[in-house]
Design a protein around this nucleic acid. Sequence first.
DNA 1: GCCGTTTTCGGCCCGACTGTTTTCAGTCG
Length: 590
Amino acid sequence: MFMLKIFESALNYVERSCDVENSEVARVLYEIADFLELQGIAFKPQAYRKAARNVEQLDGDIMEYCAQGRLNEVPGVGKAIAEKIGELVNTGRLRYLEKLRAEIPSGVLELLQIPEIGPKTAMILHKELGIIGIRDLKDAIFNHRLSGLKGFGTKTEERILQGIRVFESKAGRILLSEAFIAASTIISYLQEQHKDVWVSAAGSLRRMRETIGDIDILVASSLSQEIMDTFVSFESVADILAKGDTKSSVRLSNGIQVDLRIVPEESYGAALQYFTGSKEHNVALRKLAISKGMKISEYGLFNRETNDRIAGGDEADVYRSLDLEYIPPELRENRGEIEAARKDSLPKLVEYDELKGDLHCHTEWSDGLGTIKEIWAKASSLRYDYVGIADHSQLLRIANGLSEARLLEQNREIGKLRESLGPPWIFSGSEVDVLQDGRLDYPKKALERLDFAIMSIHTRFKMGEKEMTERIVSAMSNEKVKMFAHPTGRIIGQRPSYTFDFERVVDAAIQNGIALEINAFPERLDLNDLNVKRAIDLGAKIVINSDAHAPVQLNYVRFGIAVARRGWAEGKDITNTKPFELLRKEWGLS
DNA sequence: GCCGTTTTCGGCCCGACTGTTTTCAGTCG
């Protein structure tokens, strides 16, 4: 039952952070914050967002906190917000939010999602031009109505247009993490209700692409009617778009569309292959089948002449019957995998359980939510050999970056914790900003005490290519630097990569023994799959880190491993598959 | 609206960048 394996740890993964009630409450608090910000109210938005974040990350059910009168134990929740949560949880509505919604059309909130548009601009656009949504805004730009406004010139108009393009490039697609959690929940639900059926994710989710259009789920069973009934009665279903015998589509309350297909068991492997895609991979596979006198469809692999079934029940059989090695879903993009599978030369991809540790975790010392000990405990539960604490450096005041004095203090605390806690070993590191001129944000003396520095760029993204390349390469000459965090700086759907000479940077990384990070944070996934392949082909080492800002987020490495697999990475390419002693030795630690 | 080993009231991350502002306002991280 290979097909089930991909999600067998789904429940583990979701833990309790996926609690619908908590995220629902958080969503409402975020919405209030946005409305207050639009109204130009100071400080309250931050207060609501802080409360929202803490509710979202809460290790427990907000309903229980509410029922037991313990809401005030949640950081950032005081009397006023506790009352609002109470009203929401008990009555399912919140009059305060309804009042806010009545004052400002919700389309104005939509404008805030566009980069370059903040609360002030959104309100001006709304009040002066009556704009209440992105479509209105595009019309207005098209008719050059913005440039008539005070304070708006042609460049502003162009910038906003660019912002809309960035926004739309991800529109209709959701992040892998979001799709993964939603799908895991639905799959578990289906399996609980129908114990003997085979269920798997298919489509781009099974290939673990960084964004997902909609979720495809495949079921093998003859009980289609019952399963369809179960599916459309899933608690988060908001709309039933279609419901038939073999295919149903629903929209969840969070807007995600989910398609369910049911096939007979003898076709399950072929259907899984077909619905996993990619389209390009399938086209190439079909051509290969034809060249071998066969034909392939979602129903099976058949002899072209006699129509005899050759394979279909098991996915690996379909590949085997075409004289191919089994191709893992992450590779199915028609980027040379079929050719490699013919020659038995597919990479031995890094496995989802192969990491020995996570080297980029934040704590409440800077902008994280947990203590060092809590991060350690989570690392321990993941059976890691080591975990690296890497809080922000002093430049990043916004993230409560550590001064030299606090860095020293943290370093000492880690020393003590190592003694008292035992394994996994806690590395004492830092995510150090690279300044504009390529220097690091701490002097040598401060860095010397650390086990490692992760160099990282958070400022001056718009430098020219040459300058940025110099800046990065120059920082790499520092011998404490062992990793380069989120190397391109892109945020999916929000911010493009800064420009630099990729090959020169990879080369400098190799020369200096620096691993390039796959930052597994869902919005980053940086390096991406293509860059991972480029870097490995050039001979670079990769490190997969969660960049966790809360203990539960150490789970994010799964998405980083997916990126590595999509980039054809093997275990030997990844720094943190190394055992503890080897890594220490490599870093020159005694 | 929240919070308190410097305050139960007065703070709340703040500096850099960009555009169109002739001295500053908005956005971002």
